[in-house]
Nucleic acid binder design. Sequence first.
DNA 1: GCCGTTTTCGGCCCGACTGTTTTCAGTCG
Length: 584
Amino acid sequence: MSTNEDIGAIFEEMATLLELTGANGFRVNAHTKVARVVEGLASDLGDIARGEKAMAELQKLDGIGKSSAEKIVAFVANGAVPELDELRAAVPDGLRTVMQVPGLGPKTVRRFWQEASVESLADLEAALADGRLEALPRMGRKTIDNIRASIDFMKSAGDRRRLGVALPLAERVVAVMEAVPGMRQVAWAGSLRRGQETIGDVDILVSTDDPEAASAAFREQPGVSRVLVAGETKSSVRLEEGIQVDLRVVPEEVWGATLLYFTGSKDHNVALRERAIARGLRLNEYGLFPEDDEAAPPQQRGIAPVAASSEAEIYEALELPWIPPELRVDRDEFDRAIPEDLITVESIRAELHSHTTASDGRLSIDELAEAAMAAGREILAITDHSRSSAQANGLDVDRLRRHADAIREADARIDGIRLLAGSEVDIHADGSLDYEDDVLASLDVVVASPHASLRQEPAVATARLCAAARHPLVSIIGHPTGRIIGSRKGLEPDIEAVIAAAIEGGTALEINSNPLRLDLRDIHVRAAVDDGCLISINTDAHRAEHLQYLRYGVLTGRRGRLEAEGCINAWEPDRLLAWLARGR
DNA sequence: GCCGTTTTCGGCCCGACTGTTTTCAGTCG
């Protein structure tokens, strides 16, 4: 785990343990915020938190004060935080799992702990079985049943879902809702709209002439395994896939306010509401209202909103430009100019990383060219694996040369798309490449990627990737860390050093769009873009349908503030070809 | 615990839904 992830996890854990001890909620939130800020940093806190100016440097970060800075310094110096150790001693470890049961929060878990000796998930199940919990005040039959069902769900379902699973599922639900009579608008919101790499649940928003029909259709749609919430404007269901989907039904005139609220992030919303308060306004999911210090919600008292129908007019009333959903994270989106030409799927003209049957792909050269053309690409680089990737049927030099000839023959024969002969060349553990330079020089495109030795020490990984990035014949560093979301951590290089080497070597860093990878990840893209490093968004297609992964890579690029100018795949074809040909 | 374009102290976002209880606490997003 990287230092930043370690520290983020520590503050998350402290927040949970503090909640269980009954600490002040704002203090709990402060810890959660530190975790989020730390995990969003591209640069390594291990470096910042050493040296004489560590305390001052750390406290420059938003949300980190003296107390948190001291904890970070202590952790980096000694690998331990005394306050955390004290909390761990005071609160049974198993309660952290109990807190993860949907519907159980700190108050309830604390009661179970104090009043029924529940100290773990196993204790909780035993207490449910022997009736200890039912004996507690305010613990009825339904609550007990819900807790049982939640435990079953937690055991069966995994954690968060990958973007590539959740987005097609959201499209399915949206199609169901669009078919309901009286429907006016349907959209997905939440972390899905923000393009996060993993999704907790899917949020669907509709405006309609017939709210009852909409809610009914939602709860009765195919694939619902359990209805969790069934209100007038809000419903939640769990699908057979194990994912929760929330529906919100709103009048069309407050569409913008609800879409804004439902898109989040939560922290972005909180920041917007604070901004509203500072301007004598009050923001909720029904609109932006004048503040009149009445407790009851303004929309229930017939107060007219200042803005409600569109997100843009609400931002405008708060003296902000419309902020693209992918940038709504409560980091610096209020202070920095919004990128004018954020990358879009439509602006991508070239696919520069793909595989055929020559290595481990499923399509021939002609079939892949056809699929790429159908997907709207004007340039396709075919980059089968190099010889060391034996498990992927990597090409030795002879096969590579014949394959390159075949690609160029196809390029001459096929109209409508430019085919480039390339290779996805293994970066060896020591940073050397899998083919000799004369072989690399004979290709149109070289994507250099790490495939093996993905558990190297960070310093070794940094040297390895920097060497490849500086190599004059390398065009792109493919999936730079080699991570697989949720299952393989991959390399943990000093990303700033890799970015510097890529700039120096005139090499682009890839956003691999495969939803299992999304590598570079969003915060690394952001660091690269801020430094002026070129980015390449590719699908790494092994099949025709993989070309559709592009949208996931684009969302990741947008989260990293990537504009079309900084993405070589969006360049004019002649410009891209000239760039690829440099030094060859 | 953090923070300051009225603040170094006193605030800290807002509403829907559920369950259990007759007015609201807890959870969630």
